[in-house]
Nucleic acid binder design. Structure first.
Lengths: 224, 224
DNA sequence: CGCGCGAGGTCAACGCGAGGTCAAAGCTGG
DNA sequence: CCAGCTTTGACCTCGCGTTGACCTCGCGCG
């Protein structure tokens, strides 16, 4: 649901298979298209990045690139081609591509450039900005607001941070150490009731069963 | 407020002058910095793209890049360097750069890549010229005018910038750090009431509930 | 089987410091 | 030198985090 998929448009089966395999091994969702009618696929699917081979037979790759850009201004387009003339590079970039690699390309460089593009995609529609809903509880980290059964909760700053972290790990145990580290920015824990008190506050506002105590470990936000 | 500005970080006077001249002739607002020290401070709100030479004396260009990326996730960073090893390219991109060109670079290609990055920046933060309306409040950034319930507001310059930013992020939390950075062009925050005072002024003119305080975080413009 | 310990729960109170408010001083361009 | 704008500083308020006292409960151990 979260990370955007990659579409590989490449007619050479060997290169395409290699690309798909290595990208897949890096954890990306990858799809492949052998011929250049990819506008529909890129528009419909959950594609964030297109790796486009300009050497497609019968099709003008530049025109494909231009159509892709016209359809999706947010798409990342990386052109991959044997044409190394400066005029080709300029034409490709001006047709809407974000990056241009000349074959034979170096695999580690391609992967690093893909990482850079995916990182930039993530910076725009960051996961942290998407509201998070578990059961009756909903948290919008961008707005720093939270609701229960549609009613907004009045949370204190630390309560909000605590709830956001617990909810992002809903159903899983979160250790006291991690809570102290990520919410309070400290390793120290010793002899205080700070964390317990804030959990208490959350339980008052969410219902006592929303957060389960894991003795000697930490807490877990319950998914119904 | 448009982020079309380009910052050239380059110690070689000849190359830098050439870059600045040609970029300027293309209509970009360009600034130049000879050394990499105060880069983080120099990458203020009006800069959208940084061209970063890694050959700076005394400074670790990769570290500069990493600091830039940490400070501004939306910045476009283009590394320009003589180091052509694949391992250097990967290191540069993984340090947060969006693009990597090896010297001697081809000018037309550099310009095409700059166009591609600027185009993408424009696609994201697009309509700085479009009037913006949220609830009863309306802001025209091009004309630098603002209205409430159809009546024009008399805003001071800084108040206008502050309102424009808060409104562009209406419904979302905006941190004090970001407000200081983008309205006041400074990282510094110490012990002044500058921001608070301007928020006070806005509240007088917009109604006290228009802007919500988020303790320890920043402010949020409320959408009704 | 029951006892004791320690982890966690609960609550009230305290003190800090972020933010609000206003007035006066400091700028800066005309 | 004036006029508007911005910044600063003093003072105040109150929300919030922390703490400590006391209680409860689960669990291991004798």
């Amino acid at each position: 649901m979260s990370s955007a998929g990659i579409l590989v448009v490449e007619d050479d089966d060997v290169i395409a298979a290699g690309l798909v395999r290595v990208l897949d091994s890096q954890g990306y969702r990858v799809r492949r298209l052998a011929r250049g009618g990819p506008v529909a696929a890129a528009a419909t699917a959950d594609i964030g990045l297109v790796i486009l081979d300009l050497g497609l037979p019968d099709v003008d790759g530049i025109a494909v690139c231009r159509r892709l850009r016209a359809a999706r201004s947010d798409l990342a387009i990386v052109i991959l081609t044997a044409r190394e003339q400066e005029v080709d590079i300029v034409a490709g970039l001006d047709a809407g591509a974000d990056d241009y690699l000349v074959k034979p390309f170096r695999l580690a460089e391609l992967l690093a450039r893909v990482r850079a593009h995916v990182r930039r995609l993530a910076a725009v529609s960051a996961d942290a900005t998407e509201p998070l809903t578990v059961g009756a509880v909903r948290v919008d980290r961008a707005a720093r607001r939270a609701w229960r059964d549609g009613a907004e909760l009045e949370l204190r700053p630390k309560e909000f941070d605590l709830l956001a972290l617990l909810l992002s790990e809903a159903g899983r145990a979160v250790t006291r150490e991690r809570l102290m580290r990520e919410v309070w920015d400290t390793e120290w824990m010793g002899s205080t009731k700070t964390l317990d008190t804030h959990v208490l506050g959350l339980r008052h506002k969410l219902g006592h069963d929303a957060i389960t105590t894991l003795r000697g470990v930490g807490y877990r936000f319950e998914v119904p």
